[in-house]
Design a protein around this nucleic acid. Structure first.
Lengths: 232, 232
DNA sequence: AACTTTCAGATCGTACATTCTTTGTCAATA
DNA sequence: TATTGACAAAGAATGTACGATCTGAAAGTT
């Protein structure tokens, strides 16, 4: 037993110098694409990436295939992979889809919400307001919990998965961007209105509120992208 | 060398009875999953698949990664891939998403449609009616052209890609299933109503029509799945 | 009975071979 | 002389083979 753990430890130590923070090749590549560290439509050469990542070509190839499945790279036969541009259009497209999906998920939630759910939403909202955008990471987590509480029990797993993926992407893009004061107050307002509608069993109102929420969030991200072009 | 070719030949011969029409490994795997030829949650072993496909393991691995990106298989580290169940729920989930997306795409199309577009739609519709569901493949192609004409120029490439993917999946599932007479007439009616709304510049009406179209199509596929559970 | 050891089966990583694309050079022609 | 075409060689993607590592379960040991 001790031998096994020591071997594992050695492997971990050996990789520390290449800074392998548990992040897989897939995640590193995706992050590079989302944050624009690789230019749009740039060609991704397997051998080059492999040497950069400190591995052989196979893991890179598989990561690229996965990214292709998710639409982050575009592959043409015998001609390799190119990065799909992650620009304002991309964000707008995703947000427009979410403007369609999230209201539907929310409408359904209004029908099944219990008092306990509402209490939990208000508790999270109170925590968010108390934090007041002090810690980006914590806020993001609370916000995630807030929306997850509404969507996680939905029967349409496919739609929820889509939402999760889109949220990951948007979060990765907007990470590091500061949230404007105006957007901050809007976020709080929209959450409060959402809770009020759920309390009043007003499904349509809740749907409209979440629609505005998503749209405002998207607009804010796009504005930030236009300003600070990757303040990594 | 001759040994290798003979081995390949053997593998090819063995698979000829499963019809190897030059289709890629990815497509074959995806087809197997969509058509339920591999059971839900079944484990997919690369070596086994490789020999079945008559190739080495690497192409299979990459195909699996791509399928993972698209959500058809679920992979856990060092533990391989499992099949994501493709059942009525899956179809319902996809259709519900399309019920949200396609009306939005259609609404936009009404705003940019030219007389030439309408003429082309009517031409395609006339062809569809003339064919009258005689040739499944031809009908599918015409129907694809019909909807593609409306969606292809949309600015939201992400939404259109999603539509294309979903349509491929649904088509793969419903291939081989006969279309009931009632559904046939409904399809024609819905197309006609759609064209009428576009002519009249009635965006909302067109959106409602396409919504009913998608919903009816989904319902029909699910009914067929319930009936012919193994008409492979 | 619980824990450890062992081993087969499968995944993951590396190295190499093959095939296709692309690029650059050189000669032939207008 | 400039342009085009063929052709060779480099570059890169795809496929094959094999070794290393991990998992799961069945054996044996205390």
């Amino acid at each position: 037993m001790s031998t096994i753990t020591s071997i594992r430890q050695m492997a971990a130590d050996r990789d520390d110098l290449v800074e392998d923070t548990g992040s897989s090749i897939y995640e590193r590549l995706r992050d590079d694409i989302i944050h624009g560290r690789v230019k749009a439509n740039e060609r991704l050469k397997v051998a080059e990436l492999a040497s950069r990542m400190g591995t052989s070509t196979n893991p890179v190839r598989e990561a690229l295939q996965q990214l292709r499945g998710e639409g982050f790279v575009i592959m043409t036969p015998n001609r390799g992979a190119r990065v799909r541009p992650i620009d304002e259009e991309f964000v707008r497209d995703i947000c427009e889809i979410e403007v369609l999906i999230e209201p539907a998920l929310t409408r359904w939630f209004v029908g099944i919400a219990t008092q306990a759910d509402i209490d939990e939403l208000e508790r999270l909202q109170a925590e968010i307001e108390a934090l007041n955008f002090g810690d980006e990471m914590k806020h993001s987590n609370l916000d995630l919990q807030f929306h997850r509480l509404m969507y996680d029990r939905h029967y349409n797993r496919h739609a929820v998965d889509l939402w999760v993926r889109h949220r990951h992407i948007l979060w990765a893009i907007s990470r590091g961007f500061p949230t404007s004061l105006s957007r901050q107050s809007n976020v709080l307002d929209e959450h409060r209105e959402l809770i009020a509608c759920i309390k009043a069993q007003d499904a349509e109102g809740a749907a409209r509120a979440i629609g505005r929420h998503v749209e405002g969030s998207g607009r804010h991200i796009i504005e930030r992208m236009r300003l600070g072009r990757h303040a990594v």
